[in-house]
Write a protein that binds this DNA or RNA. Structure first.
Lengths: 155, 155
DNA sequence: CACGATTAGATCGTATACGATATAACTCGA
DNA sequence: TCGAGTTATATCGTATACGATCTAATCGTG
């Protein structure tokens, strides 16, 4: 989607598309994190999932999915991999066998103490705009999700 | 990566991670575009590739890849799909048979005239901040790519 | 001009995303 | 309480991303 324009014919250039800016910035983050995460045997998404898990231990797959905006079809394989790597545990909730509770292992907790992304803060070159951009993009995401919920129209 | 903090122990919450904001905003864009793009039989990435192609017809795969920050391993299958769907043509350059020139078909050009993302501008809820966010995120991307080039260090 | 080095695309294997569907566990009303 | 409906997770098929590698075409240098 390109930026708003008063004129009838907006500039249909890639560089004016906000969606492309986000898309390509996401690629860039993935690449920036790769060499760092390779040292601990994690992928970008796996790392993000660990951070979400750190906020609250013993979450169900759906709860984690709500934080991450992902569902079980995507999350299950990722969590299985993280379990296999030894950073998390997955166990059925005895009180409701449908649910799977996910928790950090000591290895997982130790990993998160390292603050692996610290070195990238400077690499963004945003300086004091950092929190502003972070908030704008989060707001953008929330608005998009709310305003385009499947089958819904805005009032 | 979380936002900068003066304190020794920054808030390691998901919501403070710029990379997560970008990651999830990208998911949100993909979902927002889906119902629109479904009507013309395109995926999100395929659509972005078409827009990049519209900037200049007859580009090589690498040239397109530079605009999109993608390489042939990702781009080739996408372009083959777009050819199959009838929106582009792919042909070896007679002057250098290694290169593949990609061009829009009339159907592809017609599609791009429709301005499919227009309706999402409002859904971002950014209002007049739209171009500001677009530029900040693009800058962020460029900085990340420049400052973390494989094996390189900043001076 | 021959031949090793380089270049452009393509292919393959792995890891996400995600719609559609499957499966097992729980809920709730007749 | 029993069976229909619901819920939580998992599975499957398709489409990206991307490192590693392959192949064919071109280039460069002796």
């Amino acid at each position: 989607m390109s930026r708003p324009a008063k004129s009838a014919k907006p500039d249909r250039k890639l560089s004016n598309f906000l969606c492309f800016a986000i898309y390509s910035a996401n690629l860039a983050f993935g690449r920036a994190y790769k060499p760092i995460l390779d040292t601990v045997g994690l992928t970008y998404t796996q790392y993000i999932a660990l951070v979400a898990l750190a906020e609250e231990d013993g979450q169900t797959v759906s709860a984690l999915g709500e934080k991450l905006f992902l569902e079980s079809n995507t999350l299950t394989p990722i969590l299985k991999k993280l379990e296999q790597t030894g950073y998390i545990r997955r166990e059925r909730d005895p009180a409701d066998e449908r649910q799977v509770r996910v928790s950090l292992t000591p290895a997982g907790r130790k990993l998160l103490d390292k603050d692996l992304g610290e070195s990238l803060i400077e690499a963004t070159g945003l300086g004091e705009d950092f929190p502003v951009v972070q908030k704008s993009v989060s707001r953008l995401r929330d608005n998009l999700l709310r305003n385009t919920k499947p089958g819904e129209k805005k009032p």
